[in-house]
Computed example of a mutant assay.
Amino acid sequence: MERKFPFIENIPIENLKLDLLNPRLPKSKQGKDEKTVIEYLLLEAATEELMIAIGKNGFFAGELLLVTEDLTEENKYIVIEGNRRLTAVKLLLHPSLATVKKVSVQEISTNAHFHPKEVPCLIFKEKEEILKYLGFRHITGIKSWRLLEKARYLSEMKARDYSIISFQQSCVEIAKIIGSRSDYVKRLLIGYELYKLVEDEKFYQIDGLNDTRFYLNYFTDSLNKENIRKFLGVNIDSDNPLEGINKVNLKKIIYWWFEKNQGQSRVLGDSEGLKLLDAVIGNSDALNSFEKNGTTIYEAYEMTDDMDIQFENKIRDSLKAIEQADKISNKVKTFYIELYEDLKSIRKIALKINDFKDKIIQQGDDF
């Protein structure tokens, strides 16, 4: 009687193969061989800690490996989900597979109480069935991947399942599948396309920058900033968002974000840094000073109109706070000791600001 997919079965470790195209692998490591994957997982994925846990407690049956039959080799299965766990077990059984951290791996294997020779697997008929499941589990579910891994997975999903519909509509459909918002999917997909342009340029030969050290959120968060989008030539509402891409400006931004000078980059890609950069890009004088005169992002930001807006907002916020304090002052039972000094300080600062304003106005009076 033919078994109905998916079904659970214990499979010998010798019959399980690592997925060489796993989206969690950096592109530079994909499609190589098991030796490359094992080396990467040892160096970057805390595999030794997992070896220790499995060696001490055994393989947790509740964490099934998700596999599909290898069509090129009889009785072999490719592990689509669970490659780190499979690597840990393989190294417990065969520590000689390690090409890095050899001493540590051998020691862990020697001291282990458990060396599983087979593990429980959930066998699927086709890889696509697993990928759809992983879409929710790893994009919006409890076992979230790094952003670059998410974006790479969604890009592969779009190419595989939604190539015949428009980009905008594909974002809507993918969002339904993974239980997310279409604007988030859109920013991930566009951000990944920008990343691929940078990767294709060998990361502009910036020292230390590669696919394992690139922060994709710099792109995805930047796509919420109008001035940065225009600077890059990205139209997020188009079915071809990168049609007008400005590769010269793309290179500039990557250098600003990632090239280190005395251990510091010119602009941080966090929310504060992107706010500063967006304001500077939106002001031609500030941008020119930042690009050509070597001013810091903070100095350039002070040249933007955004400082005027911030000044007004802070004054209005302060006024609102004082008005609120005034409204409840008649209900205060005991005024705090420093109140008088604080009020004097407020008056002093207000007069100082007003005097400075009058001075600026007088300087501009040509009469």
Rank of each mutant, 00 (worst) to 15 (best):
V67R: 08
V37E: 05
D70C: 11
K32C: 08
D33P: 04
N83L: 06
F60S: 14
V67M: 04
V67L: 07
A61S: 15
G58R: 07
L25Y: 01
T68W: 00
N22C: 09
I38L: 14
L43Q: 13
T72M: 01
I52A: 13
P23D: 06
K76L: 01
V67P: 04
L65P: 00
G58N: 02
K32P: 03
K29L: 07
G31H: 08
N57Y: 15
N83H: 08
G82K: 08
K32G: 07
E73I: 09
Q30D: 04
A45Y: 04
V79S: 10
K35E: 14
N57T: 12
F60R: 10
F59Y: 15
Y77F: 15
L71I: 12
G58Y: 03
N75Q: 12
L21S: 02
A53Y: 07
G82C: 10
L42I: 05
A46G: 02
V37D: 00
N22L: 06
R24E: 06
A53W: 00
V37I: 12
L64K: 15
K29V: 09
D70Y: 03
I78N: 01
I52S: 13
A45M: 13
Y40Q: 03
L25M: 07
L21E: 12
T47K: 05
V67A: 12
T36V: 12
Y40P: 10
I52W: 01
I54P: 03
N83W: 03
E81L: 04
K29H: 06
E73G: 05
G82A: 10
T72I: 00
D19S: 10
T36L: 00
P23K: 09
N57G: 14
T72E: 13
A46T: 04
G31D: 09
G58L: 05
V79G: 11
I80A: 12
D19L: 12
P26D: 08
I38E: 03
E81F: 05
E44Y: 14
K27S: 02
I80R: 11
L42N: 08
A53P: 00
K56Y: 07
G82D: 08
G58D: 04
I78P: 00
K32D: 11
I38C: 11
L43I: 02
T47C: 14
E81G: 04
K56P: 00
A53K: 05
G58S: 05
L21P: 00
L64M: 13
D33F: 01
P26S: 07
K29G: 02
